[in-house]
Write a protein that binds this DNA or RNA. Structure first.
Length: 268
DNA sequence: ACCCAGGATGGTG
DNA sequence: CACCATCATGGG
């Protein structure tokens, strides 16, 4: 148990940003966060954070998870000051960071996310963890491994609300069980963004948008720019001449998250 | 009862 | 290439 400080981090914003689906709110206003088979309790007051873990675990696991070694203050400062919409979005959701989540968890989460809403995705992911993940205490469970999901009947996934995506998950778990995931990860790591995207879209149920989410949230490829229904709507309304992607090379993913979060919470 | 949700797939023109 | 029906399902 210790305390630390950080800027450009708002836990409530991250929790609502649609990039992770396993955080649970605590009665004291903090959050219970399962990741990498561990459980963290964290509470925020401004730039001050209280943590349930040791300093060693914070440095080894959670500091990286919250992406605290990326300079989001500087990133936001480099936004085009004449772009009123993007400035407003970054000001509104300036506490959103791109978490460095577990690749497999991101693959499954965004496989399920297609043509779905965040509430249902959260419920389905919670069901998967509860049914097939190792208990972590406090009512939380770890995200189930490929081996834990391989061989589960499709009907059982449908019972968790996956709908037609249940078949996609069966196939994915089968493909990634054993050493499949490690081999696939190695191939992704060896590929550039375009190559990794092609590998991902080769998976059943993974199209361009889900692939970009996996690139961004699972591999921290910061030039990924997922085009979902919200982003398409904003681009059509505010960037009729196209979005200036070239200006934001190396930080497109963060910019995308500011726009997504802004439209999700304030748009309508 | 329609429409939407962090879309993808397979078929058709 | 573009367009289109279909795929579950809960919530507005």
């Amino acid at each position: 148990m210790f305390e630390t400080t950080a800027t450009s981090l708002d836990l409530a914003q991250v929790a609502a940003s649609g990039q992770c689906f396993t955080w649970r709110p605590l009665a004291d206003g903090g959050w219970a966060i399962p990741a990498f088979g561990r459980r963290l309790h964290i509470r925020q007051a401004g730039t001050h954070f209280s943590l349930s873990c040791t300093l060693d675990e914070w440095e080894a696991v959670w500091r990286g998870y919250f992406d605290l070694d990326t300079d989001y203050d500087g990133l936001k400062a480099s936004i085009d000051p004449t772009d009123a919409y993007l400035c407003a979005a970054a000001r509104y959701g300036g506490g959103v960071r791109i978490l460095r989540q577990d690749l497999w968890e991101v693959m499954v989460s965004f496989l399920i996310s297609q043509n779905n809403n965040i509430t249902r995705i959260t419920r389905s992911i919670g069901g998967l963890c509860g049914a097939y993940g190792a208990p972590l205490g406090g009512g939380l469970s770890a995200f189930p491994s490929p081996d834990a999901l391989a061989g589960v009947p499709e009907a059982d996934f449908r019972a968790l609300g996956l709908g037609y995506r249940a078949g996609y998950l069966c196939a994915l778990a089968q493909e990634m069980r054993g050493g499949g995931l490690a081999a696939f990860r190695a191939a992704l790591d060896a590929a550039d963004d375009g190559g990794a995207r092609a590998l991902l879209t080769g998976l059943r149920g993974v199209g361009p948008k889900v692939a970009d989410c996996i690139l961004l949230f699972g591999l921290h490829r910061m030039d990924a720019f997922p085009l979902d229904t919200h982003i398409r709507k904003v681009l059509a309304a505010h960037y009729p001449g196209g979005f200036p992607t070239g200006r934001y090379a190396g930080m497109l993913g963060a910019v995308q998250q500011y726009i997504f979060y802004y439209d999700l919470k304030k748009g309508g």
